[in-house]
Design a protein around this nucleic acid. Structure first.
Length: 505
RNA sequence: GGCGCUUUCGUCUAGCGGCUAGGACACAUGCCUCUCACGCAUGGAACACGGGUUCGAUUCCCGUAGGCGCUACCA
């Protein structure tokens, strides 16, 4: 069925903020869809009413909006295959549960959670399957009238999938090749719960993917063990010939230690695990997000795209379009990737360098305003151009650039000790007078005049410049000296020099 | 425990029978230089182990070990 138009989906559960691993899964779905000229669907899998978290769905939509990952159909967009919230598809699922029941491929089970728990305790490796279902309370063991009576008296039940044992089920995975599992190790999965009138993930997933005409299921590796069950379900529903192709992505692992990346790791190691900041409605707890930490969405996308995939070339920086063009599921790696968040900051650095200063200036301007600095955008942009190569994030500019806007109040002790010599006050006084006599205070003119003066007077360039820097900056940092003095202008430069000469004797 | 997936520098990875095993991040050193950076250059650093197959295995097969996942009326 390779001639069908490519349609893929990302189907998160609204149980909290979207995990960065989920973002990567969505990104790969997006890249795959675009690469093949197909469509991407956003579906909300809210079949577990007990875990529903208000605000989570909006958070998901907003995250993708920020990341510039656009969906073609789904929640908040619409489309011909809706509704796109599983909780709004109850009647659809009921039809197919009925179909399975009528065909003898599924059965009612009345065992209570307590009974099951007890059973599991008594029997070491208990599994509800072909070998044990005959000992349980279900429509296979109970007389028909009793089953009818139980259902009519609205006793809670579940519908289980009847799995025939001893069959080798093959899953052909795009990333992993042929994966074979014997049906005997599968249990009779619950497909439907009467308590909330909803199917479980497994059934809803298959029904929706079929009805939404999904051609490729690209999801995390945690789903690989249940893929054979899904294959069996497609067949039982008579959809074997249009079953989507599977691709199970490697997981994102903790940067250190063991296990998959979790929210806790972010807190512990100090990096975001979520695209956007999240305020937990219940606990009030706040989790940091990439957006709020100052990452560019392009950098996050670029970074994530390369965690588990690469085109086989040495290119590392990609635009979204380039990713779309080059993306290939067959080039995904198979093993889990430790989440290298330090490299994520490097990507942001690269993007800050690539971006036009005029694009960064407004963001820096907001930070300046928050610190009480109101400067013309032209000057803000100038500072950005002078200083951006030394930061990973825009917000890191402020502590490094403060001196452009605020005269030093104090002079760094260590720098004074190292750079302010016996004769510095005298030299600075002479330099001050020289600068005061300059009509043209441009960088070029200052530099020419000062360098000539240094040479004529046989001064040491380093000594002069370092002391000069101390008077204007207050410490030993910053760009080329004349960039600073030219930016400050004659008046401010002389004022700062006078003050330093006075303060430092 | 069972089942499945997986295994190249500290990390992300290239490699698809024959290479001095390549790149990037991080780290170190040097250069540049008026400081701090950027940048540039250089360096250290890997094929988990054991059997096969083959003229030849990092590459193919089988074991072992490690890692990861699943094993719910959660997704």
């Amino acid at each position: 069925m390779t001639d069908r138009k490519v349609r893929v989906r990302f189907a998160p559960s609204p149980t909290g903020p979207l995990h960065i691993g989920g973002v990567r899964t969505a990104l790969y779905n997006y890249l795959f869809a675009r690469h093949h000229g197909g469509q991407l669907v956003l579906r909300i899998e809210d079949t577990d009413s007990s875990r529903f978290v208000p605000g989570a769905e909006d958070y998901i939509v907003e995250s993708f909006r920020w990341l510039n990952i656009a969906f073609d159909e789904g929640v908040g967009i619409g489309g011909d295959h809706g509704p796109y919230r599983q909780s709004e598809r109850r009647d659809i699922y009921k039809t197919y549960v009925r179909q399975l029941l009528d065909a003898g491929r599924a059965y009612y089970a009345f065992d209570t959670p307590e009974e099951l728990a007890r059973k599991r305790e008594e029997t070491p490796n208990f599994q509800y399957d072909a070998t044990t279902r005959s000992q349980m309370r279900n429509s296979l063991t109970l007389p028909a009238e009793e089953v009818k009576r139980l259902i009519d008296s609205s006793t809670q039940y579940v519908v289980r999938f009847k799995i025939e044992p001893n069959e080798d089920v093959h899953v052909n995975d795009i990333i992993r090749g042929d994966v074979k599992i014997n049906s005997s190790i599968l249990d009779d999965k619950v497909l439907y719960k009467s308590a909330d009138q909803l199917p479980t993930y497994h059934l809803a997933n298959i029904v929706d993917d079929h009805l939404m005409e999904i051609t490729h299921v690209i999801r995390g590796e945690e789903w690989l063990p249940s893929a054979p069950l899904h294959v069996l379900l497609y067949r039982a529903l008579g959809w074997g010939d249009t079953m989507p192709q599977f691709a199970h992505l490697p997981l994102l692992l903790k940067p250190d230690g063991k296990g998959k990346l979790s929210k806790r790791d972010g807190d512990r190691l100090g990096f975001p695990v979520f695209p956007l900041e999240w305020h937990d409605p219940k606990s009030g707890e706040v989790s940091s997000g990439y957006r709020e930490q100052g990452y560019f969405p392009e950098a996050v996308v670029n970074f994530l795209a390369l965690l588990g995939w690469n085109p086989g070339t040495e290119q590392e920086l990609f635009t979204l379009d380039e990713l779309v063009q080059q993306f290939d599921l067959g080039k995904c790696s198979k093993a889990g990737a430790k989440f290298d968040y330090v490299k994520g900051t490097w990507f942001n650095h690269e993007y800050i360098l690539m971006k036009d200063n005029s694009e960064i200036a407004p963001e820096f301007d907001r930070i300046l305003k928050a610190n009480g600095i109101d400067a013309p955008m032209e000057r803000v942009e100038k500072v950005v151009s002078l200083m951006k190569n030394r930061v990973n994030f825009v917000h890191e500019l402020w502590p490094l650039c403060r001196f452009f806007f605020v005269a030093p109040e104090t002079y760094d002790e260590k720098t004074v000790k190292k750079r302010w010599k016996e004769d510095s006050a005298q030299t600075m006084q002479a330099l001050r007078d020289l600068l005061a006599g300059l009509d043209d205070f441009s960088l070029e003119n200052q530099e020419a005049a000062v360098m000539k003066w240094i040479e004529d007077n046989q001064l040491h360039t380093g000594n002069v410049m370092n002391a000069f820097r101390l008077t204007l900056v207050g410490e030993g940092i910053g760009p080329h000296m004349f960039d600073i003095s030219a930016f400050l202008g004659k008046e401010e430069t002389l004022r700062r020099m006078n003050r330093a000469i006075e303060k430092l004797k």
